[in-house]
Nucleic acid binder design. Structure first.
Length: 933
RNA sequence: GCCAGGGUGGCGAAAUUGGCAGACGCGCCAGACUUAGGAUCUGGUGGAGCAAUCCGUAGGGGUUCAAGUCCCCUCCCUGGUACCA
């Protein structure tokens, strides 16, 4: 069987237009001050989460979000915006390094090859990226600024007074190293022996590495940390005004995990040691019948009595041998050991035993808790297992006999607060504790400081050297600090990074050596969106003007400055930096997968706030509007994977149906944010739609060449056509704004159906009844063979193109396609199917010239409400809520008139016969409901 | 366990403020044109019934003239999270 004929010549016109865009660069957005920049236009920054260029190339998940943003970008350009729509490469990363370990090929080469493949694929889909802004995080011109930003962080501290990052020079304490936002600490870290590196908490899933699924163990190591916890409060608060999915905001809030409570001091009996615990329920203090320390808590050694030392030591050894996975796995059964020591409950003055147990974590709160078994499930389980006292101190509301209340209630058995409701009791006991100097109100966060160093080769080296056991920054002039050449990228196995192998590079001077760690992959993605504003800047990470323009929009007057920035005169009265004004700050639209909800999006917000505080940026938040695309499943409804053999390659789809069909199908599948399965027949359906658009304008001549159809004529659209046109303009515009691309395409299908099927809406009335066999879409050959029908003057559109052209469609005939309607459709469809519409626009312009003749320069059409209204409307007549008839009435019909029509309707009367009418509900333009019984 | 988001034809899905459920597409059925059709066009297509009509938005209750939409309970699916005191 010969190759199937293409429904329209996308295989020719798509490469043609891609070449045109390559050459003319219509999507390049000049910066303020550059030639071609138009300051009168508003800006719109629409961003994709840039890809890691993996070896397997693009899959259909990438183009889903990319198509959505491309549609918005093209739409906004047509609407008159200066649109920043860039793409780049998250190019540092583990896969290229592991490939290097296996094959010896340098990661840089692998990365370059992968980028080339990704880029080719993206271009084949016809995305309107501004390729002049392409960046790669592994490019020294890029990562020199990643290193520079690290130095800004290193040279800063968080001033609790102003609640901002400030230059370290403003710190007046003894040792600046205690407060730097980038600091070194020896901490128990997630060490992955297989990967030979440590991982951030966020990169460990169920005790295994997120990448590769290898076991991860806790191990104390000296690491670089970033003090993200200082920003916990602001990272939560400034989330509120952002236009993000509520679910993602919640995910971040939960990750940061703010909880308000009190620190309470317990004195160890017969000693003057104080153990502070954190509790969210200070009102249950009287019910604290024991105390538990984390096994790692340093106080344990000091407290443990002689008789218990062996047991304690054994338990601690047992706990430390467990991986995270085991520790959480064994969570079902509580375990612990008594230290032999006692503490005094500050409220009741009771002696309570001090235990250690692994259900208390060293990393949260103070690493010690008060056990209130009556009102905490975990404490109860523990107390029951070890026979500890249980004392009820909260009575649940409503039921005086119930026990084990973990929610709010009324305090009992608590002399200071008896009878108070939980909120009141909390307040009173906290005030009492503060008065007595026994405690204080405290806020705790689950968020930990960000473990920022990795023992890898393929990442940004730290711009840090070590001298006499102390770290210091290298000069900015020494940036970029590029990784040394290596031919062995394997982990050393000792925890020492592979960079240690580059002996010459490591030796910085007689007395100093370089830091051997590299930054994690997140580093580049923390600020790449800023670099896009000004990718070629050799002086700064981003130019002030470019940053201000693309992140904030055109500034009005000279007063537009970074209001919240350091330095500030009166820190005492300084409010938190005001959150971004809705709709006016940062990236206007950011689209990507949910997998980055707490990692990339939290880290990037953190860096952004530091840079904002230091006066480098104009907005406090980077991403104003965030949308997550849903994942695309295989045709079998399973996750796409090699294992199931259900992976769809975009290039295969494009080869068979074209890029426009691929784009439109991805958008037509269903709501962007929803998970949905792929369907090849679905692609075919969309491809048919595009072919109908093509044939609306084009027909084949005798030679089998596509030429502009004779039926396309400069005629006025009919009233019915105008309604379809303007309904479509309205729907498509609103749907693109709302990112409801599937319904926008559906409406354009309705448009095309209306213009291709005379029987539907385009030609109403008996006089325009379709002629059998003379449908517009009939192919030329068939029409010629259609005998007498072909001779009929009724035949339009089909064209019966005789070689000499004697049989012409009559201009203005009822089957004509008005040029204006076609043009409107082409502009509306252009963001979705840019190649097809560009070609048709150009072809149309040869017979019906317009200026300018570039579809990319056309204005987005505006709908006119006057064409949407109807003269008549169909009303449903209901009896007791069931539709019994429909009548068409003038739009002007009044409610009483409608009621009369309904009452007199024979069908209605049939159903209310013998019943009494109780009520008649009239909904104008919709229905009349007669209620009778 | 907890948190979030979902359950609508054979399938993907539509459906302002509660107001004619199933737009649009796929698939399927029939027809037209064809040497042919996996092309194109036309018509049909939620279920049951000859029909009038009845039943239908996970299941059960409720509010209402009217519920996919609002309220209560239950079940199922997807994602996140996991002793955070």
């Amino acid at each position: 069987m010969s190759e199937r004929r293409k429904p329209y010549p996308f295989d020719l016109l798509e490469p043609k237009w891609q070449a045109v865009w390559e050459e003319r660069r219509p999507f390049h957005a000049p910066n303020p001050g550059e030639p071609g920049f138009d300051p009168t236009r508003p800006k719109y920054y629409v961003l994709d989460m840039f890809p890691y260029p993996s070896g397997s190339g693009l899959h259909v998940g990438h183009p889903e979000g990319y198509t959505a943003t491309d549609i918005v970008a093209r739409y906004k350009r047509l609407c008159g915006f200066n649109v920043l729509h860039p793409i780049g490469w998250d190019a540092f990363g583990l896969p290229a390094e592991q490939y290097a370990i296996r094959t010896g090929q340098h990661p840089e080469i692998t990365t370059r090859e992968n980028i080339a493949r990704f880029k080719m694929q993206l271009k084949r889909i016809g995305f309107s990226y501004d390729w002049e802004r392409e960046i790669s995080t592994a490019d020294p011109d890029f990562f020199r600024w990643t290193q520079w930003i690290f130095l800004q962080i290193y040279h800063s501290w968080f001033n609790p007074e102003t609640r901002r990052a400030e230059p370290i020079s403003t710190y007046t304490g003894t040792d600046p190293d205690d407060v730097r936002l980038a600091f070194v600490a020896t901490v128990p870290v997630n060490w992955c022996p297989e990967l030979g590196t440590v991982l951030a908490n966020e990169e460990v899933i169920d005790g295994k590495s997120e990448v590769g699924g290898f076991p991860v163990v806790k191990r104390p190591m000296r690491q670089w940390m970033l003090r993200i916890t200082a920003f916990a409060e602001r990272l939560i608060d400034e989330l509120d005004p952002l236009d993000w999915p509520e679910g993602i905001k919640l995910l971040q809030r939960n990750w940061i995990g703010k909880s308000e409570g009190a620190g309470v001091d317990f004195v160890v009996a017969e000693e003057d040691t104080i153990i502070t615990v954190f509790t969210t329920r200070p009102d249950t203090l009287y019910g604290a019948t024991y105390m538990v320390l984390a096994p790692e808590n340093p106080l344990v050694d000091q407290l443990t009595i002689k008789e218990q030392r062996d047991a304690i030591a054994a338990y601690r050894a047992q706990v430390s041998a467990k991986s995270d996975l085991e520790r959480t796995d064994l969570a079902k059964e509580k375990s612990g050991v008594f230290t032999g020591a006692y503490a005094i409950n500050p409220a009741s003055n009771e002696r309570i035993p001090i235990w250690i147990a692994d259900y208390v974590l060293m990393g949260y709160g103070t690493g010690a808790i008060m056990g209130v078994p009556a009102h905490d499930e975990r404490d109860l389980e523990f107390a029951q297992k070890f026979g500890l006292a249980i004392l009820e101190v909260v009575q649940p509301p409503g039921d005086a006999t119930a026990t084990g209340c973990t929610g709010d209630g009324v305090a009992i058995n608590s002399p200071l607060i008896d009878g108070l409701t939980t909120p009141d009791a909390k307040r009173k006991i906290a005030a009492w504790l503060e008065e007595q100097g026994l405690g204080r109100r405290t806020i705790n966060y689950k968020l930990r400081d960000w473990l920022f160093s990795r023992q890898r080769y393929w990442g940004e080296p730290f711009p840090i050297i070590w001298r006499d056991g102390k770290h210091e920054a290298i000069a900015e002039s020494e940036l970029p600090l590029v990784p040394p050449p290596l031919d062995d990228f394997k982990p050393t196995g000792t925890g020492e990074p592979p960079l240690a192998r580059a002996k010459d590079w490591v030796r910085y001077s007689e007395a100093a050596t370089r830091e051997l760690n590299t930054m994690p992959q997140w580093a580049g993605s923390c600020w790449y969106y800023l670099r896009f504003c000004d990718p070629g800047n050799g002086e700064r990470f981003v130019g002030h003007e470019a940053e201000r323009y693309w992140m904030m929009g055109p500034t009005s007057g000279a007063g537009a400055t970074n209001e919240g920035a350091f330095p500030r005169q009166s820190p005492a009265e300084a409010p938190l930096p005001s959150a971004v004004r809705p709709g006016s700050g940062g990236v206007d639209l950011y689209v990507g997968g949910t997998e980055h909800a707490v990692l990339h999006l939290l880290y990037a917000r953190f860096w952004h706030k530091v840079l904002f505080d230091l006066g480098h940026l104009s907005t406090a938040e980077p991403f104003q509007r965030l949308v997550n695309q849903g994942i695309i499943l295989g045709e079998d409804g399973r996750k796409m994977s090699k294992r199931w053999g259900n992976v769809i390659d975009p290039l295969d789809v494009i080869a068979e149906y074209g890029a426009d069909a691929f784009r439109c199908y991805e958008m037509f599948m269903g709501p962007l944010e929803q998970m949905k399965p792929w369907s090849m027949t679905g692609v075919e359906g969309v491809s048919r739609f595009l072919a109908r658009v093509w044939r609306l304008a084009m027909e084949e001549n005798q030679a089998g060449e596509w030429v502009l159809s004779e039926s396309v004529a400069e005629v006025e659209p009919s009233r019915v056509q105008l309604k379809v046109i303007h309904t479509t303009i309205k729907k498509v515009s609103e749907d693109i704004e709302a990112l409801s691309f599937n319904t926008a395409i559906a409406q354009m299908m309705i448009f095309v159906n209306a213009f291709t099927s005379p029987g539907r809406t385009a030609s109403p009335g008996p006089g325009n009844a379709p002629v059998p066999g003379a449908g517009f879409g009939v192919s030329p050959k068939q029409s010629s063979a259609a005998g007498e029908d072909a001779e009929s003057a009724q035949v339009r559109g089909g064209g019966t193109p005789s070689p000499a052209g004697e049989t012409r469609a009559l201009p203005g005939g009822d089957r004509s396609v008005p040029v204006s309607a076609l043009r409107t459709l082409l502009v509306l469809l252009h963001p979705f199917a840019p190649h097809l519409t560009s070609e048709l626009w150009e072809t149309l312009g040869r017979r019906f010239p317009v200026s300018p003749n570039e579809i990319t320069d056309q204005p987005w059409p505006e709908y006119r409400a006057e064409f949407l209204v109807e003269d008549e409307v169909e009303i449903a007549l209901q009896v007791n809520g069931k539709v019994r008839d429909r009548v068409t009435v003038p739009i002007t019909a009044t409610n009483p008139e409608l009621e009369t029509i309904a009452r007199n309707n024979p069908r209605v009367q049939e159903f209310i016969a013998g019943l009494a009418i109780r009520k008649v509900v009239v909904i104008p333009k919709k229905l009349v409901n007669v209620v009778a019984n």
